[in-house]
Design a protein around this nucleic acid. Sequence first.
DNA 1: GATTAGCACTCACCGAGGAAGAGTGCTAAC
DNA 2: GTTAGCACTCTTCCTCGGTGAGTGCTAATC
Lengths: 347, 347
Amino acid sequence: MQIDERKQKILKAIVQDYIATAEPVGSRTISKKFELGVSPATIRNEMSDLEEMGLIEQPHTSAGRIPSDAGYRYYVDYLMDPVQLSEDDKKKINKEISTRLNEIHEVMEYTGKLISQVTCLTSLVLEPKTKNSVLKLHFLPYEEGKAIMVMVKDNGKVENSVVDIGEDITPEELQILANIFNEKMSGTKAQDIKTVLLREIYGELSRKRRMLDGILGILGRMVNEFEEVDEGKVYLGGALNMLNQPEFRDLDKVKDLFQVFEESNKLKELLNHDQQGLNISIGSENIEQVLKDCSIISATYHINGKQIGSIGVLGPTRMDYSRAITIVDYMTKSLTEMLTKKYRRTK
Amino acid sequence: MQIDERKQKILKAIVQDYIATAEPVGSRTISKKFELGVSPATIRNEMSDLEEMGLIEQPHTSAGRIPSDAGYRYYVDYLMDPVQLSEDDKKKINKEISTRLNEIHEVMEYTGKLISQVTCLTSLVLEPKTKNSVLKLHFLPYEEGKAIMVMVKDNGKVENSVVDIGEDITPEELQILANIFNEKMSGTKAQDIKTVLLREIYGELSRKRRMLDGILGILGRMVNEFEEVDEGKVYLGGALNMLNQPEFRDLDKVKDLFQVFEESNKLKELLNHDQQGLNISIGSENIEQVLKDCSIISATYHINGKQIGSIGVLGPTRMDYSRAITIVDYMTKSLTEMLTKKYRRTK
DNA sequence: GATTAGCACTCACCGAGGAAGAGTGCTAAC
DNA sequence: GTTAGCACTCTTCCTCGGTGAGTGCTAATC
């Protein structure tokens, strides 16, 4: 869409003023607050054009204009001024995160809190996907018929779960299972394990008929475990901030919104776009109908340049895009750096 | 407080009608809906007395009466009719829980969902406190200078964490440490481990001077781990249900309430009364000022008759107490039974 | 003496009506 | 092409009277 410079300035003024005040912007306001050197009447004419183009709209006849989704999109793509994060903010973020780096879930939770605090919006943080290799498998004795399976993954995480092994499997046999895994499978992606592993083990064990049935059963359950821990958890932070937004003064809207917040699957989907890097989804561009008055800024972070998770902020379409983008961007970089440092492995 | 039978009947009618309708109850309503055999005028006189006693109050002059906190308390203590849970409900609860019994956090989360669904209120579920014994300790190799410590607790939970062990500790030495622990300490309460363990290990190892320093360091960190995992997580479910309650039509109240919901520490405190069994906290009886219009029904559940956690429901003071109590009560019993069955150990 | 009918009074709630104010669109002049 | 002027629209806010639910009091009744 090609629009002339003065229209751009006016659109920019409308978006910025509306972001700041949450009130429809009138022609007089623009001519007073922003120095365009033209009278309100001229601005009115331009606004009429902008409305025809679908970039702004009028809540009712005698009100000012507010940006449409398309208007925000144009603003974000072409008009927005870049914002620098203050050194203070940067320091705060870096320091706060690095003091919390013990457990991955603590990092995630705190990252979320931090983002929502700095942006005054709601934060979404997706745990690194553990669609990655299990490096090593250990079995430990538990109780009759059960064993503790400890999995070391190549992102440094350690998971354990109790698996049923049946009564007639001996510790030695379990050890064989672990050995086979550690020798042959180490580094296999979890989702590939199901097929590959089963074939391998089958070959290896075909001599030892007696064990076979039991162990195949264990494998079935193990693979379930692998998949279960595969899911990155999603952390929601600062949901309350939404209640301070004037667009959520309506209780029904709050209900709808929080309904989405309670469904972690939906939240995951919101962050789960395929492309890497920064992504901005404005209003009706969101998959979720309920979020038609919200925008989401999200970005991916990396560990060892490979596994990825994402973080995002969710706010009303009328959010301070440039600030939010800057913060999300900085946060992903800082997270990538720290997590990579933490989980750098010789392998 | 001694009040005559007719006053009791009237108070009961007021509470029940108010619970059902959320509207102040007038004298005419009572005389029509409940068969007391007296005219509205008589009821009015009685109501006037009840108000003087502080059991009911009047929102404004020309409105009916609503129960005060003291009124609810009297109702709960003396007037309430017991409710039987329908067989359907029972079956539903039992079935739903037992299909989910794999991971403790799944049980907790699902229990919460179930309670909030059945009561249409908000549920709080406190994980079993793991202020309990570590039965067994294992060490597994991780990377240079670190080891995976796997702890089996006597409530059946398995926890793992990566501990720094320093470069010059050999796997064999770690094994010794584990052996010492498993022989001497097994079953010691986590909070007692710090002192006892240190003394024991010190004696055991005083011969092997070289190892001592390193191992003492590990112990320090281990003990931190023990304490860290001590905290039971709290699960919140059905927070949205509160938004359907007419008392939370006011956005500011919602904000305050959700503020509490976001602080898991406060939620824990709400469930953390010392006495076992059922506990009812009405309105201003709550520690948390913000919850002065809410009541909490909570009860403790047990595993192996020892470790305890609790579950609760939170709703407006105008909640259906007898139903809520019945459900919470049934739920704790059913949870106790199932968890005890699951975690029954020969030890 | 307890109960009740009758009645005046209070007060929240609701909808109508009207004034104020913000903002527009149009027209005519610059 | 730009702007001043003006009529017009529409929301917001306030006021005001009517309505209805419910009370408290008084006097009559059981």
